[in-house]
């Protein structure tokens, strides 16, 4: 990180500020040439717009008035202590929470590409086809490496063998796994190492060409080398995909993400450019967390 301190301070100004108890929403600032952050940030309306979101597990409120705008082709990190609701929010984005009984959104909306994903008539299955997800624990199907990736394609209605073959190869290449497994595509995926399994899961998500990839602590079960590989991969992928990553590791958030959202007790405490959040957090709770005093 070789950015000048000045850039950092200017980044802090664009940080969406809110106190833990306050649920007012500061809309993303209109497009202004941002000199901060890596790359060129634009302030166009985000790809994903979350407004006033309340989420409940039964009677327990898990998310409280979340307002968040996530931009396309960026890596956005969700950080915060356990139980802060970051994974819940992530799973709201592809409606995985639909699978949990008695859980659901009571208020607020999520729009992706301008469309409300919880609107009547929205098919969560169509939604999930465009929003890929990678889980905390690698979860390859007990099938061959090839079949793991082909599964999603078949679900999408691909029938042509040659096309499936080429897509499998392409996504394995994109996930930087091709060179390691191209000679054993038809071996059981459970024979791969933990890091390879996780990259396979990423490849599986890539194969169906989603617009957004959600990553739920994708490296928490991996060793540092495997983690480094995945982080490298994330850097590659953000050229083409919008990536949202939930992580426990603040170093990881700092390394891979462009923007960071800090959650605490179901509330979004602070959201802004990653460097600003880490170097110059505006909220004392954020500061306490990123400096390791709790969490």
């Amino acid at each position: 990180m070789v950015s000048a301190p000045a850039a950092i301070s200017s980044d802090s100004q664009t940080t969406t500020r809110m106190s833990a108890g306050n649920i007012t929403f500061f809309p993303p600032q209109p497009a202004s040439p941002a000199s901060d952050g890596p790359g060129s940030e634009s302030r166009a309306p985000g790809l994903i717009e979350i407004a006033g979101l309340d989420f409940y597990y039964g009677e327990k409120k898990a998310l409280d008035g979340i307002n968040l705008s996530i931009e396309a082709n960026r890596v956005t990190a969700f950080i915060g202590p356990s139980g802060c609701g970051k994974s819940t929010l992530l799973r709201c984005l592809n409606r995985m929470n639909d699978l949990i009984e008695d859980a659901g959104i009571r208020r607020g909306s999520i729009k992706i590409g301008g469309a409300d994903i919880n609107a009547r008539g929205v098919d969560p299955i169509e939604l999930r086809k465009r929003i890929g997800m990678v889980f905390q624990k690698s979860n390859p199907f007990p099938k061959s490496i090839y079949e793991n990736i082909a599964y999603g394609l078949r679900i999408q209605g691909f029938k042509n063998k040659a096309e499936i073959d080429s897509r499998v190869e392409a996504s394995l290449r994109n996930a930087a796994l091709w060179n390691e497994v191209n000679d054993r595509l038809h071996d059981n995926a459970l024979g791969l190492s933990g890091g390879q399994q996780q990259r396979l899961c990423i490849a599986r998500a890539l194969a169906v060409e989603p617009q957004v990839i959600l990553m739920d602590e994708p490296c928490s079960a991996l060793d540092p080398i495997a983690t480094a590989k995945i982080e490298e991969l994330i850097h590659e992928l953000k050229k083409r995909y919008t990536i949202i990553i939930v992580t426990h590791s603040m170093q990881q958030a700092a390394r891979v993400s462009d923007r960071t959202a800090f959650f605490y007790l179901g509330r979004l405490v602070e959201y802004g450019g990653t460097r600003a959040i880490f170097m110059n957090p505006s909220n004392p709770q954020t500061e306490a967390y990123v400096s390791g005093r709790f969490g």
Binding site: L127, G132, F135, F141, G152, I155, A205
Partner: peptide, 9 residues
């Protein structure tokens, strides 16, 4: 189960 759902199955 989740992996499959997340792929849009």
């Amino acid at each position: 189960r989740e992996a499959s759902f997340a792929l849009g199955a």
